[in-house]
Design a protein around this nucleic acid. Sequence first.
DNA 1: ATGGGGGCCTGCCGGC
DNA 2: TGCCGGCAGGCCCCCA
Length: 283
Amino acid sequence: MPELPEVETVRRGLLPVMEGQVIARAQVNRPDLRWPFPLGMADRLTGARVDALRRRSKYILADLSTGETLLVHLGMSGRMLISGAQVGGFHHDHPAPAKHDHVVLDMAGGARVTFNDARRFGAMDLMPTAGAEAHPLLSVLGPEPLGNDFHEDYLAARLRGRATPIKSALLDQHLVAGLGNIYVCEVLFRAGIHPARLARDVTPEEMARLVPLIRAVLAEAIEAGGSSLKDYRQADGELGYFQHRFRVYDREGQPCLTPGCGQVLHRIVQSGRSSFFCPACQR
DNA sequence: ATGGGGGCCTGCCGGC
DNA sequence: TGCCGGCAGGCCCCCA
């Protein structure tokens, strides 16, 4: 279920138990997720120290002391469960292995990180750290929405003349990397743009609004995820997906929250994905 | 080149 | 209670 903010939240949750720590043992319970695991993955992880835990778009990247980088994508249902960590003075034991626990990393520090993914749309791969950005999954990505390369002129240039709905354009990871279905819906609502409007028909004024709105929505979500991490999630051992008050996502039939609006929110399907919007506020 | 749809998997929920 | 269809926060790949 993770979009950029959820992945960033997971990364931050993993930081204290993984960064600077050695992977004492790696257990790989099946040959693949979405794609086959790289050859000898368990052996290549075992004994490696995690020197840095980074994020690029929705990918978590662990730079290892072996000169390799572990790439992790959570897909739709992937989760990183932490157990055995020292949390708030309590020592949590490892839970019994659960269905869909595909990869288990036992850190030398005592924590266990379990990758669980029911639908197996997730992915893991290993590549040389030098030139990791050349990995086929990473090299095609657009700029980070929170980074300096994502700005009004860039967005205008990429949307110019495009006959695709703005909803589809913003979901395209080649254009900007990290937005998913929820945050695109939320961004378009805040920008007052109908999801079916063609990208080429988005006005310069609207584009100027979009960039800071995209940044704000993602930043708020990261903030909310970060704060939820402090309480039960950490104690629970689960790095959860952040709970947020969505203004339009999954609110079909409910009233618009714009003060004085009260219109019933609609849902349409665009290239197989649900779009939620207010027909009055979004044109 | 660009845009749209299918497909990959499993789980859950609502309706009958 | 069980079965079935529809739906799910991702993205690659193929086709027109």
